[in-house]
Amino acid sequence: MSLQVVTANRLDDGLVVFLTADGGWSENIDQARVADGKEAGNALLAEASVPELDIIIVGPYLIEVEQQDGGLVPTKYREILRTKGPSVRQDLGYQAG
């Protein structure tokens, strides 16, 4: 079925982050740990939703992604915007590099 990663906003600066393989949080979606299928996705989300993480991140949730050109790209346009930055200010956000 579908590939998924967990995203959230970091508590102190509010920026978009992704749950990584080592249980940390990265600004780069390509470093996200990928879950395949519903069960694996829910397990990943459960890991990201433990109370101890409440002082690291806010509002974790699952998004669907696809492999594209060796990187991960969300399937929904909302999440694409979120991983890149405002489409009307390409000089800002992660897209600015």
């Binding site: 509010g14 920026l15 109370p51 002082i55 509002g59 915007l81 956000g93």
Partner: peptide, 28 residues
């Protein structure tokens, strides 16, 4: 108190909102 974990996001949320602080798509 929020950063130190004394209050949860759920308890903090209305407090930050009443001070004009939202969490939006990319950032606060």
């Amino acid at each position: 108190r929020r950063l130190s974990g004394d209050i949860t996001e759920e308890q903090f949320r209305p407090l930050r909102l009443m001070n004009g602080v939202y969490l939006q798509l990319h950032a606060y």
